[in-house]
């Protein structure tokens, strides 16, 4: 492992910003575009990780599952739940380059949500991202993004990826 160059660090930060912008705007196509063709997304709890329990809240372990996640949000469950606005606040904790040319990045995150019916803002979850990132055609993409929530007990329901 070695330190990430400023240029690559900027690419990693750009990717995280694109990811957050996609979710804030409910643009699931842009969310999907943040992943490489080998991409995986997992949303799980700190408790499951700590106890080495493999169940997750969302387990998209191949690109086909990522595409199905988009379909689930945009079509299958589009009118099944009340919409809520999300805001992500993230903080890069570490970024390293592996010998394979891939990158590891760790972020803290807090996500607030504001349902349209109450218009009150509450915490959806707080946690950390553990990312494996590749650089393809000059842009960083997630090979794997694991969102691990300290909020082991989530409020109500979670429609969108975190």
């Amino acid at each position: 492992m070695s330190k990430v160059s400023p240029a690559n660090k900027e690419l990693i930060e750009d990717l995280n910003s694109e990811y957050i912008a996609a979710l804030n705007d409910f643009n699931m196509d842009n969310w999907l575009a943040c992943f490489s063709q080998q991409g995986q997304y997992i949303l799980t709890s700190e408790e499951n990780i700590r106890r080495r329990l493999p169940i997750a809240f969302m387990l998209d372990d191949c690109y086909a599952r990522l595409k199905d996640r988009v379909k689930q949000v945009m079509e299958i469950q589009y009118d099944s739940s009340e919409h809520y606005q999300m805001r992500h606040f993230t903080q890069l904790i570490s970024a390293t380059e592996l010998k394979t040319g891939e990158f590891k990045a760790n972020y803290n995150f807090s996500v607030y949500y504001t349902p349209r019916d109450t218009n009150q803002t509450e915490t959806l979850c707080v946690g950390r991202y553990e990312d494996t990132i590749v650089i393809e055609s000059g842009a960083a993409r997630f090979k794997k993004r694991i969102a691990i929530v300290d909020t082991n007990v989530l409020p109500r329901y979670v429609v969108y990826p975190v």
Partner: peptide, 9 residues
């Protein structure tokens, strides 16, 4: 194999 925990409203 694991838990999912939630508070329903």
């Amino acid at each position: 194999i694991g838990y999912q925990k939630v508070v329903y409203d």
